[in-house]
Simulated scan of single mutants.
Amino acid sequence: MSAPLISGGTQKGRSIMSETTAQTTGLASQYSAQVTGDLERNLKEQQRLSGEIEALQEKLTALQHDHTILVNLQQALGVPAAPVAPEAEPATAVPAPRKKAAAASGAPKQAKAKKTASARKAAPAKKQAVKKTAAAQSAAPTVAPTLVELVRAHLTGQGEPRSAAEITTALGEQHPERAVKATVVRTTLEGLVAKNQAQRTKQGTSVFYTAIDTASATSAEQPSPSA
């Protein structure tokens, strides 16, 4: 009687272990799929943030460059950096004798004469300041184009679709001083597609981009008078 009971208990134990193993395998596969999806979303978010950071860095560099030019122009024009505080109103003068009043009546004439002389002396200085300003403007270097402008110009000059890798290689050869990355170029291209300034096409597993004429796209979006 003891042998059948032992064999039955063994079979139940095996069935329980197999069910537990199956449940564990199912949970493991679910967690694996969830982790894979989270990793993909994390990488996409990193690429997006990298593109935004580089775009902001380029804007900051351009603003710093403009600030330097404006400061140089301000110094050339002789404009004070800080606002001038308003002058205090003169106190009410005590009435003076008639003789002193007569002398005071000639003071405005002398002040006008001094102002006229100082204005004549300041005229050549103003002309020199204007010349310095024109020279500084002509000698000021042009602001470097942003990556968005470079990508847009490259797409416009191409007669056929281009991939992100091809555009990255071309821009790297044209602008070796700039560290052009494929991830940033791809993010920039997607931004142009979102703004209806570029078109994305897919050929197999590859993605290609072409420029869209801004004028034609705007006229196509505007409703007709009959509508």
Rank of each mutant, 00 (worst) to 15 (best):
N42P: 00
S50V: 03
Q34D: 12
G26Q: 07
R41C: 05
I53C: 02
E45M: 12
L60Y: 05
E87Q: 08
N72F: 03
P83E: 04
E58I: 05
A81T: 11
G13R: 14
K59T: 03
A33H: 03
E40Q: 08
K44M: 06
T24S: 10
G13K: 12
E19V: 04
A55T: 05
E52Y: 14
M17W: 11
S29R: 10
N72T: 06
K44S: 11
V71E: 13
L60C: 07
E52W: 05
A62H: 02
P86K: 04
A22C: 03
L63M: 15
V35M: 15
K99E: 15
S29N: 14
A85H: 08
I16K: 07
Q74V: 05
P90N: 11
G37R: 02
D38Q: 14
A91Q: 09
A88M: 07
L43T: 15
E87G: 08
V71A: 14
P95Y: 04
E19T: 10
K59Q: 07
Q46M: 14
L49A: 04
R98W: 11
A85Q: 09
P86S: 04
I53E: 06
A93H: 00
A33E: 09
T61F: 03
Q75E: 15
I69W: 05
T20Y: 11
P95H: 03
G78S: 01
L39N: 11
A91R: 08
P90F: 02
N42L: 12
A22F: 07
L43H: 11
L70H: 08
L43E: 11
P83D: 10
A55N: 00
G26Y: 01
E54P: 00
G13I: 06
E45V: 08
S7E: 10
V35Q: 10
Q47K: 09
Q23L: 15
L63Q: 14
V35P: 01
A76I: 01
G51S: 02
A85M: 10
P83Y: 04
Y31V: 13
Q46I: 13
S18L: 12
E58N: 14
A101L: 13
S15F: 02
N42D: 09
L60R: 15
A96F: 03
E40R: 07
E52P: 00
Q30E: 05
V94K: 07
R14K: 13
L77V: 06
V35N: 08
S18G: 09
G37T: 01
K59H: 10
A82W: 01
Q23P: 01
L43A: 13
T68H: 02
P80G: 06
Q11H: 09
V84K: 01
A76Y: 02
A91Y: 00
Q30I: 05
A88P: 10
I16Y: 03
A55P: 01
R14G: 06
S7H: 10
Q34T: 09
L70G: 03
R41Q: 15
T36C: 03
E54A: 04
K99A: 14
T36H: 04
K59R: 07
H67C: 07
L73A: 11
V84M: 00
G51W: 00
Q74E: 07
P95M: 05
R41T: 15
G8V: 01
A96K: 13
N42R: 12
L39V: 09
R41V: 12
Q23H: 11
L56E: 06
E58G: 04
A96P: 04
E52S: 05
A22Q: 15
I69N: 06
I16D: 06
Q23K: 15
S50C: 02
